[in-house]
Amino acid sequence: MLIDWFTILAQAINFMLLVWLMKRFLYKPILHAIDEREKRITKELADADTKRSEAEKERERFQKKNEDFDRHRDELLSKVNNEAKSERQRLLDEARQAADVLRTKRQDALKREQQSLNDEITRRTRREVFAIARKTLTDLSGTSLEEVISEVFIRRVRELNNETREDLATALKTSSEPVLVRSAFELPSEQRSAIQRALNEEFSIEIQVRFESTPEVISGIELTSNGRKVSWSIADYLTSLEESIDELLKEQSRPEVQSEAKAALKPESGTKSTALEEHK
């Protein structure tokens, strides 16, 4: 008999037992291991994806930051550059201005110095000339300088050219105030009457004269009436002297523009001299 029923039963039970054993020891653990591994791989892949995207984001953020930083730096640099330029310009301007001010000051100081020197020279010269003239005149004729000056003034009044004379006459006539005669010294009564007389004779009217002594009119006499003036003083001579000294000083201080200075000065001195000649 090929079929044994007990064996069939036993084998069926055996097989069921084997199924249970296999399930217990083989399929479950193996499938579990495979599932776990798959889960793990999936998780790792997901993690990697997350990390990659995070890294990407991070990279983008850093890139943006870098760009911002660069732009900011460039802006700052250009700003600083501009500021430095403007500051430099400002400092230069300031320095230039300061230099200009200094130069102007120095020039002014120089001018003032020159001026004061000139004034001093003029003053001294006048005094010297006055002293020399006084001494000379005294020595020569025994007359005082005041006397001579008065005479000269009178002569000048008498020798006035027609135009001036008419102008002065009109002024004298229209003036309500007395004619002012100023002199550097107190005129003696003789001279006063001489001047009065000369004026009366010259303009053929009775002229009220007021005498005044001021040191401004250096060694001279000055007649003023209603804006018209006739004068003689040693200052006229001294002005001429002053101009020549001026010229001399300028030539010394600017030798390189000597020729130009000369050219510029010549006509000026020329006119002055003609004016002086006229005065004389």
């Binding site: 055996n14 084997l18 054993l21 296999m22 020891f25 083989l26 653990p29 291991a33 591994r37």
Partner: peptide
């Protein structure tokens, strides 16, 4: 056979690795 299969399975699956 059952013994061999079960013991072999047990031995092998005794220490399963879920790593790579």
């Amino acid at each position: 056979l059952m013994l061999v299969l079960a013991v072999a399975s047990k031995l092998i699956t005794h220490r399963l690795s879920i790593g790579l």
